[in-house]
């Protein structure tokens, strides 16, 4: 019993360490199944890692409340969920995921183009390797914002 408890504590503490200081993260993966039979039902049953029950605040208590993302945690949550899409939009210098990221960071809409241009310019700083984590990426983006004269101080949720 003690062993199990120890393992549980270890596992949960690891996941807490992997996230931001308030223990926010997504954790689970999309369950993918595409056999003929399962697909017959899958189209309507829809398993997803978004299936949090309603009023139940999940273990990610710093991150969401009643399944809604807390505003100040939105950049973290968004970065974690959309890292790949963001990477692609950033390389391109445009895209919906990128402009949405700008909004999640609290940047005003008239600075979205600037944000897209700056992040593309600094792409290799933001994604230095293929293993860059969402959190590292987020911190680099915040640094880019801080260093840019038009963007600095304009994005409410981008303070480092």
């Amino acid at each position: 019993m003690k062993k199990i408890l120890a393992i549980v504590v270890l596992v949960t503490s690891f996941s807490a360490m992997a996230d931001s200081s308030t223990g926010c993260g997504l954790g689970s993966l999309i369950w993918k199944e595409n056999t003929i039979i399962s697909a017959l039902f899958r189209s309507t049953t829809n398993h997803s890692f978004s299936s949090q029950l309603f009023g139940i605040t999940s273990g990610t208590s710093g991150c969401s409340q009643h399944s809604l993302v807390k505003r100040d945690m939105a950049p973290v949550y968004y970065a974690e969920a959309n890292k790949e899409e963001l990477k692609i939009d950033m390389a391109r210098g445009e895209g919906e995921y990128l402009t949405t990221f700008a909004e999640a960071l609290g940047c005003p809409s008239n600075l979205k183009k600037q944000f897209s241009n700056e992040t593309q310019k600094n792409f290799s700083k933001i994604f230095p390797t293929s293993n860059t984590t969402p959190l590292e990426m987020l911190n680099s983006v915040k640094a880019v914002i801080k260093e840019n004269s038009s963007l600095q101080g304009q994005c409410t949720y981008a303070s480092i």
């Binding site: 890692f49 978004s50 299936s51 029950l53 309603f54 009643h66 399944s67 809604l68 968004y78 969920a81």
Partner: peptide, 8 residues
């Protein structure tokens, strides 16, 4: 259940 649209 409810979830951010970007997840969907």
């Amino acid at each position: 259940n409810i979830a951010p649209y970007f997840l969907k």
